[in-house]
Computed example of a mutant assay.
Amino acid sequence: MFKERVLTALVLAPLMIGGIFFLPLQEFAIFIAVIATVGAWEWANIAGYQKNWSRILYALVVFLCLYASARFLRIHEEYKVYYLAAGALWWVLAFALVKRYPGGTEVWAARPIRALLGLCVLIPMWVGFMHLKVSEHSSLLIVYVMLVVWGADTGAYFSGKRWGRSKLAPHVSPGKSWAGFWGGLATTLLVAACFAFYIDGWLRPVDTLFGLQLLLITLVTMVISVLGDLVESMMKRHRGIKDSSSLLPGHGGVLDRIDSMAAAVPVFAFMMLILDWNLT
């Protein structure tokens, strides 16, 4: 299993790095849309659509929604904030669903509702990535969001393994603990401090306002990234499956790799917009 995870990571890492740093805007949009479409094929299974034709149909619907959104936002860019606001609102509602689980499943147990929730996850994720891509120093912003998510996950793993007795959400993900959450938070704060130091030395002076906004955006993004993982775990537990698919040997499915990122990116982009925060 470990060997499979390493080999898969060695293949995926260059693809992600190449996509982030070297793809022009249009190709990058297609790149993220492909990831979202594969994620949609997996989400259909999580939603309860087991037949392959229904999963392909759902993936096609999501791809068409992404295409329609791209065409619409190309003309009406000012509506981007509403896409991201809808995505952020979904994660607020998702917190309530996770907190109530295993109660409250009657609200979202129906397959069409779970399918609709997939749109709330995948479309804002694509819009969020595109907002970051068109921003100044786009590659740096995207890498920073990834470092926040990976930092939270890594810190949670080691601190949870060492001190994780009190469970964060025992009915949803028994492996997650409050010690893991605080360890992930501490790691994220370290990532933010290193990022601010880099920005101050290479791009612009980091004043109090910039620093406070960076801290706020980072903390909210970190919390939402944890929620993204919990929501997928909740959906899979309700569905009775361990992984979203077996596309990535040793890792499960695409959604199993991007669940935290799918939550973090649109919220990070939304906060950038409402706080008018950028790196210039």
Score class of each variant (00 low, 15 high):
Lys3Cys: 07
Arg5Gly: 05
Val11Cys: 09
Leu12Ala: 15
Pro14Tyr: 01
Pro14Lys: 04
Phe22Asn: 04
Leu23Asn: 00
Glu27Leu: 14
Ala29Ser: 12
Ala29Cys: 06
Ile30Leu: 14
Ala33Asn: 06
Ile35Pro: 01
Ile35Gln: 03
Ile35Met: 07
Ala36Gln: 07
Trp41Asn: 08
Trp41Arg: 09
Glu42Gln: 09
Ala47Thr: 05
Gln50Phe: 13
Ser54Asn: 11
Ala59Trp: 00
Phe63Pro: 02
Leu64Phe: 14
Tyr67Ala: 15
Ala68Val: 04
Ala70Cys: 10
Arg71Glu: 15
Arg74Ala: 15
His76Trp: 11
Ala88Trp: 01
Ala88Glu: 02
Leu89Ser: 13
Trp91Arg: 00
Val98Lys: 00
Pro102Arg: 07
Thr105Asp: 10
Val107Phe: 13
Ala109Gln: 08
Arg114Ile: 09
Leu117Glu: 08
Val121Ile: 07
Leu122Tyr: 01
His137Asn: 14
Leu140Thr: 10
Ile142Ala: 02
Val143Glu: 06
Tyr144Leu: 06
Val148Arg: 00
Gly155Ser: 02
Gly155Trp: 00
Gly160Cys: 00
Lys176Gln: 05
Ala179Pro: 04
Thr187Met: 14
Thr188Gln: 07
Leu190Arg: 09
Tyr198Leu: 07
Pro205Gly: 10
Asp207His: 07
Asp207Cys: 07
Asp207Met: 07
Leu209His: 08
Leu212Pro: 10
Ile217Gln: 01
Thr218His: 05
Val220His: 13
Thr221Tyr: 00
Met222His: 13
Leu227Pro: 03
Ser233Arg: 02
Asp243Phe: 08
Gly250Gln: 06
Met261Cys: 10
Phe268Leu: 04
Phe270Val: 00
Leu275Lys: 06
Leu275Met: 12
Leu279Lys: 10
Thr280Arg: 13
